[in-house]
């Protein structure tokens, strides 16, 4: 119907194939970009130099104001009160004793429990 000559047929065939090929590559590329990532769990604290000194527990009997402030949920005011408490009543004998400080309740204690020590 179209009366194509031989060379015309080749040209058209070639162009069609190259276009299809290109589209195929785009399709594959899009498909590849849609795969899910690998989500794994690593222990951030395994990495020695990433953790620094925070591995050590903070001694509530010797800890300075600054050190105590590093504890979660403990601000400068509360840290000051922890220091005042030990100056007034002597050193803490057990870590539970810190609950006697005004402002440290159940929730705060549970948070810092594993991060503090008395010796």
């Amino acid at each position: 119907m179209l009366n194509l000559s031989k060379s015309e047929k080749y040209v058209i065939l070639f162009l069609s194939i190259s276009a299809l090929l290109g589209m195929g590559i785009i399709r594959i590329r899009n498909y590849a970009s849609n795969r899910d990532f690998k989500i794994s769990q690593i222990d951030l604290s395994d990495n020695k130099d990433t953790l620094g000194e925070s591995d050590e527990k903070i001694n509530i009997n010797t800890g300075s104001l600054e050190e105590l402030c590093k504890l979660p949920k403990i601000g400068p005011k509360l840290a000051q009160r922890i220091i005042e408490h030990r100056n007034q009543y002597g050193p803490y004998r057990r870590i539970e004793d810190i609950r006697n400080v005004k402002g440290i309740g159940e929730v705060k204690y549970n948070t810092i429990e594993k991060l503090i020590s008395v010796e």
Partner: peptide, 19 residues
């Protein structure tokens, strides 16, 4: 045929530009 070629060339340009 030439008209078809024009279309196909345009299509190729589009595809490979995207690629």
């Amino acid at each position: 045929a030439q008209a078809i070629v024009v279309m196909l060339v345009a299509l190729n340009i589009f595809v490979y530009k995207t690629l």
